[in-house]
Nucleic acid binder design. Structure first.
Lengths: 186, 186
DNA sequence: TGCTCATGAGCCACATCTGTCTCATTGATG
DNA sequence: CATCAATGAGACAGATGTGGCTCATGAGCA
């Protein structure tokens, strides 16, 4: 990972931010559109990201870092599983548009799987399930696929409603947490 | 709507079927790929559907027809709302790949909204919610957005797991119905 | 058998997006 | 003030997808 300073760091950040915005509005946004959104020339984008794939890859890396930090803050391996799920979703709710884009899975790119987590991160979340079965706090009829699928589906819904913007973030978050809890609790 | 007979009807159907398959595998499948999947020349597709938009539009129309039929069979306005939801999802489970594509919302097309229902159909489903609140069978804290969102999110999950193909359709369907019921019941 | 129509294959023009390059400008730094 | 790195604008070639067109072929029907 190359680090930038001063002017270049600002340009780099502007491109990343604009890419997130532009791709949220249109998953097929072109390099030109992203450049315009960033207020830079198209050539400049290619200076920082040789190809479109490099830009997308950088976004994925960033999202993985943020997800990783969220998982750490959620301390998934502590306490009753049901509460761990609530902490996890609470952290997800604090993540931004980037995670929403990747969770929606609409980006046309081979390397981007449907879920914006790497294998290790997914395993960390999945590990909560058996603990929840053992401590009796999670629905015993829930298997791993549905468990993960439900968490991501509700999170995607949350981001959609947040974007629609008819309710406050706080209200949407608490409703989101309530829905997830109802779906996964024993 | 133009009707075809004999050879042309068969070609038309082959194109529709192939488009569904191809777009399920890759939402950005080109006309050429769809033609190859249908076993016809690319020029032939343009004879039936002047442009790509016309083909997509035809798929949307077909999906709306099927959804309409499913809604009729589900008799949404009969009996307790909770049971109506179960009948509705049971019918959704019988729909095919086409509905799964549209529900996933990955098709890059302006005219295709996120939900594969027209306004009337969406209103029909939404109308179940207040009845469920009145008869006490549906979660009273559930608002319309979450109600619709949950039904579609679980249906999308169902189609995903069906496509993944690790379980029988019957098992996946009953699990799907159970999950939806848990999410929406009072 | 002979005819007709739908088709497949090929070609073309056009549009869009990508990636590379050059060059003049600008603004920060010394 | 002088220098230099970063930038914006633009031109360019290549790739890809679309839509229109022609024409020979072949399957189905009279």
């Amino acid at each position: 990972m190359v680090e930038y300073t001063g002017q270049q760091a600002r340009t780099h950040a502007a491109i990343i931010d604009a890419a997130i915005e532009a791709l949220a509005a249109d998953p097929n946004a072109t390099m030109g559109e992203i450049a315009a959104a960033a207020g830079v020339g198209r050539a400049t984008i290619h200076r920082y990201f040789p190809g479109r794939a490099d830009l997308l890859s950088a976004l994925v890396d960033l999202a993985l870092q943020r997800a990783s930090a969220a998982h750490e803050r959620a301390r998934l391996d502590v306490g009753p599983a049901r509460e761990a799920v609530q902490r996890l979703c609470g952290e997800y709710a604090e993540l931004g548009t980037l995670q929403a884009i990747l969770m929606a899975g609409t980006l046309p790119d081979d390397e981007i799987a449907k879920h914006p987590l790497n294998d290790q991160q997914q395993a960390d979340v999945a590990a909560v399930l058996p603990r929840g079965h053992a401590d009796g706090s999670i629905d015993p009829t829930l298997d791993e696929d549905w468990f993960l699928g439900i968490i991501w589906a509700y999170t995607t819904l949350f981001f959609e409603y947040l974007t629609a913007g008819t309710t406050s973030k706080h209200a949407a978050t608490s409703e989101y947490l309530r829905r997830v809890d109802k779906a996964v609790r024993a």
